[in-house]
Design a protein around this nucleic acid. Structure first.
Lengths: 110, 110
DNA sequence: TTCCCATATCGCAATATTACGATATTAAAA
DNA sequence: TTTTAATATCGTAATATTGCGATATGGGAA
């Protein structure tokens, strides 16, 4: 098949899975790190930092944008992409609150 | 193609991407939440909580195990799967340290 | 306007993923 | 030993993903 079942899962789980799936690729994760660490939002030389063709990088950028991880556009002299803090924080919250709920000492003895 | 390029990325990025990719599926994310919230490690009734066939759930479990997100096995009377805290914490650290490096007020004006 | 540069989109081919039923496996129970 | 219950694996078909070259697009420069 290749099609991912969505029925039966909560919208929260489905949405978070989409975000994490977008991050689950070396190129896209590297793009996020690059955007985080770069002093400004310009991504003009992003292609030079990745071992991928320009068209492929553009495709990955559009996927990151699709799930809301990055925002911005290339319109004329305003060339910029940057992190969407809202979504990034959402991920942080997800993992932090989840971890708190792990019962201490629950590690299985197998 | 469908094949993911690995050459040119740091091992850290590649490994974290694999972990996040494993989490980037509603079923697998739901499994993790279930394991976190369940009082014990037993996952016998996991299939009842997911809208998927038993064989599909088993496959997802094996993928979570492949990247180290869960550990444990079904061996005789010791039926258990549980979270691998090491890997889970690794994810937490990854996002927390990354977020700290975001330059404040860097949001692009486009 | 025409040219140039950077980014986006398209089309394709190769591979990966997903899901399910059927079957195999494994260990406990009868 | 045979049966039973639970999980794992196999085989499959359908769809998704990935990457690249070619091309389109859009704005500034000449």
């Amino acid at each position: 098949m290749g099609i991912t079942k969505v029925d039966g899962f909560t919208p929260e789980v489905t949405q978070m899975a989409e975000i994490l799936k977008a991050l689950g690729h070396p190129a896209r994760l590297a793009i996020m790190e690059y955007l985080i660490n770069s002093p400004d939002c310009i991504n003009g030389d992003l292609v030079d930092h990745l071992p991928l063709a320009q068209s492929t990088v553009s495709r990955h950028l559009s996927e990151l944008k699709k799930v809301g991880l990055i925002k911005g556009t290339i319109t004329g002299n305003c060339i910029s992409y940057c992190i969407n803090d809202d979504v990034w924080d959402k991920i942080k919250v997800f993992f932090n609150t989840s971890s708190d709920q792990i019962t201490p000492g629950k590690s299985c003895a197998c």
